[in-house]
Structures are given as C-alpha cells and as structure tokens.
Design a protein around this nucleic acid. Structure first.
Lengths: 247, 247
DNA sequence: GCAAAAGTGTTTATGATACACCCATGC
DNA sequence: GCATGGGTGTATCATAAACACTTTTGC
C-alpha cells in the first residue's frame, strides 16, 4: 500500500502507433471490401489492442499502460510498446496529456499520449503481438474505441498530417532503400489526398537529400524503379543550422 | 490519507504566461540597462513567481500547482493562474507533459505545461499578484529557474514563435483597437527579428480580417495612426472552412 | 520648422501549380 | 504486343522580398 496526504491521480502512457499496412493485418481486424487507395495499395493504419479486462472489455484500445514511479514518460511509452508489440526501434513524439476527470471509470487517470511510427518493412510487428488480440486498422475504418481513445487518435492524426509537411517523417514508414513512388504513395496515404507526380519528384530531389543509388527495385512486373536513400545524416546537420524541410 | 495499491505520481500544471511588458514590471524584477527593442519599447515577457518554500526557496518559478483529483487539467491551469495573478480571461494552449523522474526532489511529479497569453492592456495583472513576489521578465533576461522550468519555458517560446506564423495569436497580446504598428511591433517582439513595414501591412490587410475603424489613436506626439480591429468572428468562421492564417 | 511616426507601390525573384507523353520491362 | 508503372520539362501564376520617399501632427 502506498499512502499520500492528498489524492493522486494515476498516470498512464498511450501510444498511437501508425504504420503502413502490408495488407495482411493480424488479429481480428477484418479488412473486407476495401478499395485500394492511391497509396500503392497500402493504407495508413493504426495499431490497436483488444482489451480483455473491464472496463471496456472486448473493445479496441490504444496500446499503453501505467507509468512506473521512477520511469521517464518516454521510457514508459517505449517499454509498453515493446511489451505489446515487440518493436524497439521507432519514431516517438509526445502528443500531449489527456486528463478529463471521468475518462476512466475506475479512478482518475491522466494519460500522456505519444505518436509513434513503426517501420513495417524492417520490423514484422504483427508476429510479435503474442497472446493479446492486436490488429492494424486503416485510419478511415476504425472500430469503436475504449475510453477517450478516439479523441487521442484524432489528435494524433492531425499532428501526423501537419508534421509530414515540415519534417521528412515519411521515411519513418519506409525501408532504407526507397523508390520515389513509395515516398509519394506514403505521403498520399498520410494526407489522404493525391499529389502531382512530377512536382512531387522535382521538389523531393531538389532538396538534395534523396540520393539515387546504383540499384533498382526487384521482382516487379514492369520497369524497375531507381532506388534512393534519404540522407538523414546530412539532413540532421542542415537542420541544426536552421534548414527547414518542406514538402 | 489516501491509499493506493501501486505508487502514484503527483500531477501539477505549470503555466508559461507571456505578456507584452508595459515597462513597469512588478515585484523584484529589476529591469536596468535594457535597450529598447524594435517592439515599440515593449518586450515579450514571462510572468514568474518567487518561491517562498523549499525546494528552490527564493528561486523564480513558473506559476502553477497541483491538479485536484476531480479537476480537468485546463481548469487547474486556469484556477492556478487566477489564484496567482487574478487573470481570468486568457489564451491557453497545452504544451505537453514533463515528467523526468527526478525533476522534483520531494516526490515524483509529472507536470502538464500550458502556454498562456495575457492581455496586459485589458487586465492590469501585476496589481493582482498580492503577497507573493511576482515579476515580468523579458524572455532574453531570465533569472535562474526552479526545477526544470527553464526547459519548459524554452519549449513554450519555441511553440509561441511557431504559432505566431500560422495563427493570429498576436492579437491575444493587444487591445481590441490596434494600430498596425502595434501589431507589427508585437510580432517582432515575439519573433525577435525585424519585419518589413510595407510588406507586413500589405499582407495583414490583404487578409481582409483587419478592418479599419473610424478612429485614430490618441495622445501621441506625432501623427496619429488609424485604429483597426481584428475580425475574430469572421476569422473563426473562415477557419472552420479550412482557411489558414499566414503571417 | 523639426522631430516622429504614418502611410503608400513597384519591381524582381522565387516557388507553386498545372499539365501529357514516351520509355522500359515483364508477362 | 500489351499492360504497368518509370521517368521527364515547360509555361503560368501567385506569393515573397527588397526597397525610399512624402505626409501628417504635435511640440
């Protein structure tokens, strides 16, 4: 038992984990009747976990959990994600605190939400989601969510869409070696709107941060596209000097 | 006494309150040797409170306090601000949660920080800051701060500077009836850099949201400037339809 | 009349948008 | 040979930036 002179709220972290669906979603996420989008057949998806305890038992929820008493907030988010999805290496950005008094029926719970992005090319996440029922849901086909997770998710989506325009965050979704089509398709999946191919490529290449490799993609039933690499080191260096990405 | 099965952190709110200094700062804030800036002689300032209790007794800190167990986070921020500064009506935006485990030496404290703006034209804040020693400090002449408040303040300043470019947030600092010079000077004070007068006015007026009134400023030792009003209602309506401010 | 700030346009450069065809490859 | 996506350039438009003098008013 832990005693305090004044009442203390519980504090949790919740993660809105975005990924680019590879079309074999795990768990009970049913994905029938979906028209392929402009995004190369891949959708922007969110990782949800089906609750097996009350409250909201059976409902889908954001992965998350309680912050340990000596644990940094970001560390808690990373720990929960690793426990629940097996992913270690990902993009993580704090979204904010959500603390409406009655958001959890058990006790006062304030949650710190994080926006995370997993690279499904590098990490086969669904394999690691063990016993618990987990699934990737396209952002426009979400189930009803537990707690106020719908509000948090909406805020995360807004943030993601705003961020994709002024940070090279698209590459968090993609493998090291990418085709320009992949970059465009992913950007379109995030924004939910089509972009002009020539203008997109022009602008991307004009940054000088997308360097062509001496390699082309493989196993495609048409002309193979040039592979490129995002020069993150150079970007970080420029960024430190005030450079601003803009796409 | 309040008992929990697991340890709970304490949760506080802290406010970074920005204002446009009217050059008679209250409290112990000494303001000697200051060169007047481009901002019309007014600086972007932050409201700080001198702590009278340990830890950090005597040090300056952000106004804030504990969140009550049934109180919304934003309500807690508003309450603390009213208690400590007497201000009711202000701009408030959540900045994020700060929760490094050792940021408070007494116990684990997670704080939710808010960015606030008070309109010193409408509300004479310093008068209301009663017993406690409070003062407005120019953002480039800050004293050493308690806890991790320097980090929070830096984050708030970054956010403010980013926001002033894509929301008409300048008007939060200013009275209802403004001169274009005031708007420009305030923007310059926030950004910390000078702007071109003609371009600034052109762009501002081009929005159609700054409407000239049939009135001019009074009691100035030179030609009186036209007064204008920011049409917030129309802005809100446009905003809802996807309009984006850009200055 | 002089100090102090108000007010006012044009030119240039840069970036954003719109737009359509031929090419390479696998089947 | 045909289906699929890869790759490319130009003209137009809109916005941003640079830039200096005359006018009004109070003292």
């Amino acid at each position: 038992m832990f005693n305090y002179q004044y009442p203390h709220p519980a504090v949790t972290v919740d993660c809105v984990v975005f990924g680019l669906d590879d079309a074999h979603s795990g768990g009970a996420a049913q994905r029938a009747n979906r028209s392929t989008t402009a995004a190369d057949g891949r959708d922007l998806t969110v990782l949800l976990i089906q609750r097996d305890l009350d409250p909201y038992s059976g409902a889908w929820a954001l992965p998350g959990g309680f912050v340990k008493i000596d644990e940094d907030l970001e560390a808690a988010a990373l720990r929960e994600l690793e426990e629940e999805t097996g992913v270690r290496d990902l993009y993580l950005d704090q979204l904010g605190a959500f603390g409406t008094p009655d958001r959890d029926p058990r006790e006062r719970v304030i949650t710190v939400a994080y926006l995370a992005i997993v690279n499904l090319f590098d990490h086969p996440v669904t394999a690691a989601t063990d016993a618990r029922n987990a699934g990737w849901f396209p952002v426009d086909e979400l189930p009803r969510l537990a707690f106020d997770h719908d509000v948090i998710l909406a805020a995360a989506l807004d943030r993601l869409r705003a961020t994709v325009r002024d940070e090279p965050i698209v590459f968090e979704f993609l493998p090291d070696k990418v085709t320009l089509r992949q970059v465009q398709a992913t950007t379109e999946a995030i924004l939910g709107e089509p972009l002009d191919k020539r203008n997109f490529r022009k602008k991307l290449l004009a940054t000088g941060l997308i360097v062509p490799l001496d390699e082309v993609e493989m196993d495609v039933a048409h002309r193979a596209a040039q592979l490129h690499r995002f020069d993150r080191e150079r970007y970080d260096a420029l960024r430190a000097e005030g450079y601003r990405w803009n796409a």
